[in-house]
């Protein structure tokens, strides 16, 4: 068979076209993947917002739950969720980041640290209900010790609490801390690992101690990544219902943690902020779950409105975190 220049050229052109087609196809596939998830989210948001209709109002945000759909509000769940996430972050971030720094910067790679590492990875996949049962045993009941009530007099306020913690916000937050820790630790480790070793070497070469290197070079560089992990963990905690149901979050509650449900309350009773962790509580997903189950048709709207509020809180949290992350990212100059 004779092979002319022109047939070779044709063959090449055909193959080139095929390769271009494959490229276009792949790009199309990727963009469809993106847009379909955006579309699903948009449909979900649209449908829920449409269902919620005019239920979302200032009244809805500032009233407690009610037997009548038109009076039902989300205040107890909203404040409960904010408290819970706040306390969880307070416990989870120092412990999680501390553990990650230890594992990445200090610990020698022995079989023991490798085992810890493996266990943390496994814990990240444990179903949340298991943490609920653990939290119930460890914090709500404290392995069955007899319950005692205490009153702590701080001069300007008194704090009433019990040991074990009972079905309190604190027990819930500690349970959520256990649940969030593996995710935070793993994300923080990844972020620390992504800091180039040359940065550490340079710091040591200039005479910085290990603590100075971590404090001034490694941590700032890893912070955006750490924050991403924290946001993911907190977002997951915000939507959890099952472990909190086990720990004993209430369905209906007539008060907010610390009896503070307005700025006026806060001004009149700042000591309530210290009392709050020991009070009973409910959270947004618990309220939504309860509304779904109620027989009255009016609660369909209330449910949708509750979901919109939960999503708004989630967006707000993520927004703040992205803002913080970008501020830190801009500061890094090597």
């Amino acid at each position: 068979m004779r092979c002319t220049i022109s047939t070779l050229h044709d063959e090449y052109a055909r193959q080139l076209e095929r390769r271009h087609r494959a490229g276009t196809f792949f790009a199309g596939f990727c963009s469809i993947s993106t847009w379909s998830s955006v579309l699903v989210l948009a449909v979900l948001l649209g449908a829920v917002s449409w269902q919620a209709g005019d239920t979302i109002s200032w009244r809805f945000l500032t009233s407690y739950d009610s037997r009548n759909a038109e009076n039902a509000g989300v205040l107890a769940g909203l404040l409960g969720s904010i408290w819970l996430i706040g306390l969880t972050a307070l416990f989870c971030v120092p412990i999680g980041v501390g553990a990650a720094i230890y594992l990445e910067e200090y610990a020698k790679p022995t079989w023991f640290t490798r085992m810890i590492q493996l266990n943390i990875s496994n814990l990240a996949g444990v179903p949340s209900i298991v943490y609920g049962i653990l939290g119930f045993t460890a914090f709500v009941r404290m392995f069955g010790i007899a319950k005692e009530a205490y009153r702590l007099n701080l001069g300007f306020t008194t704090v009433n609490f019990t040991l074990p913690f009972g079905r309190s916000l604190l027990a819930g937050a500690l349970t959520m801390t256990l649940l969030s820790l593996p995710v935070v630790i793993i994300a923080a480790q990844e972020a620390l690992r992504a800091v180039p070793p040359s940065i550490r070497h340079a710091a040591y070469a200039l005479g910085a101690t290990r603590w100075q290197t971590i404090r001034h070079q490694v941590l700032p560089a890893a912070l955006p990544g750490i924050l991403t992990g924290v946001i993911l963990a907190m977002s997951r905690a915000l939507g959890e219902t099952a472990p909190l149901a086990v720990v004993g979050a209430a369905t209906y509650i007539t008060f907010a943690p610390g009896k503070i449900d307005s700025l006026a309350d806060l001004a009149a009773n700042p000591g309530g902020l210290l009392q709050a962790p020991f009070d009973g509580f409910t959270v947004l997903p618990m309220q939504i779950y309860n509304w779904v189950m109620l027989p009255r048709a009016g609660f369909r709207q209330v449910t949708a409105a509750g979901i919109v509020v939960l999503l708004l809180v989630l967006f707000l949290m993520n927004g703040i975190a992205i803002f913080i992350r970008q501020r830190f990212q801009q500061k890094i100059r090597w």
Binding site: E148, R167, G280
Partner: peptide, 12 residues
């Protein structure tokens, strides 16, 4: 800080 008699008080 004092202990409160809690014999009749359930959680919360």
């Amino acid at each position: 800080c004092e202990k409160v008699d809690s014999n009749s008080a359930p959680s919360g």
